[in-house]
Write a protein that binds this DNA or RNA. Structure first.
Lengths: 148, 148
DNA sequence: ATTATTGCAAACTATTTGCAAGTGA
DNA sequence: TCACTTGCAAATAGTTTGCAATAAT
């Protein structure tokens, strides 16, 4: 899917949920559609101010929250880096393989919930989370030449 | 393992790493040894002040951080509840089944990394995370009688 | 005796809120 | 038009830091 199509789809979902499509939101959708990895609120703010110099942090926060509540964005808390966001794949269930260095994220389809799990207790299962962390190929090479 | 034994083991690990065993740390170990679920820094502070009224928040934070860096505690970021800590099982690898309501946590041994995974890219795998969220039996019953 | 640890206070960061002005449907 | 959204400013929550006093080894 082309970046612009993805942005369109994100906007369509927002509109379908009764949200107004402002220029700021249009730009937000574009930013996330054209970004592979995760963005912090500050990253988003910086990119957004490039187009709308007067944009404020609370607008960024408000929209990030609303967009993730509605499922257009996925949020993720990096232990060191705090809360970050990325556009969510709206098509199919999958999990993530995340580079601990550059945060580049690949997806894979294996889901442990499809295996025959024997779980303790009698919980009513609502949700799950499975992520694998590693160092991507590029970063492995970089590691051979330690930085300053 | 009895709670007091577990506290002893936590303290032993700290001592072995060259840390001084203060009364505050002794109490911290007891608190975590006798708690099943997760505790927020505030929870810990509240329990600690019960014994040491003069304890300060920064002492709590400092020790929580050091204890998790050393592996005595596991830390975990709940999207809604912020950062929380629990004593880590030092014995064997496992994953968690967490109640989304009361945070009561059970462990289970199934690990998706033992399955034959076909992962994309060529990441050097360092770590993984697998958690299942649900509602425990007690909370399912409570839900039938909605609160105020 | 020496050095880690604590408590206090203050600083700092990230995030949220109230409200008037602006803007999309 | 009219309700949703924004920008500003100020408030709040959570966490960290510097330093003198205290306590563990």
């Amino acid at each position: 899917m082309a970046d612009s199509d993805k942005a369109q789809e994100m906007l369509a979902i927002m509109a379908r949920n009764g949200w107004r499509i402002t220029d700021q939101r249009r730009t937000l959708a574009q930013i996330f559609a054209s970004t592979d990895g995760y963005l912090s609120p500050k990253d988003v703010y910086d990119q957004l101010t490039a187009k709308y110099p007067s944009v404020s942090f609370d607008t960024v926060y408000r929209n990030l929250r609303m967009m993730s509540e509605m499922g257009v964005l996925e949020q993720f808390y990096f232990m060191e880096g705090g809360l970050k966001f990325k556009s969510s794949c709206l098509d199919h269930h999958h999990h993530h393989l995340i580079c601990m260095n550059c945060e580049k994220t690949l997806t894979f389809d294996f889901c442990p919930m499809k295996e025959s799990l024997h779980l303790p207790g009698h919980y009513k299962i609502v949700n799950h989370r499975f992520e694998i962390y590693g160092i991507c190929e590029e970063c492995q090479h970089e590691a051979a030449v330690p930085g300053p």
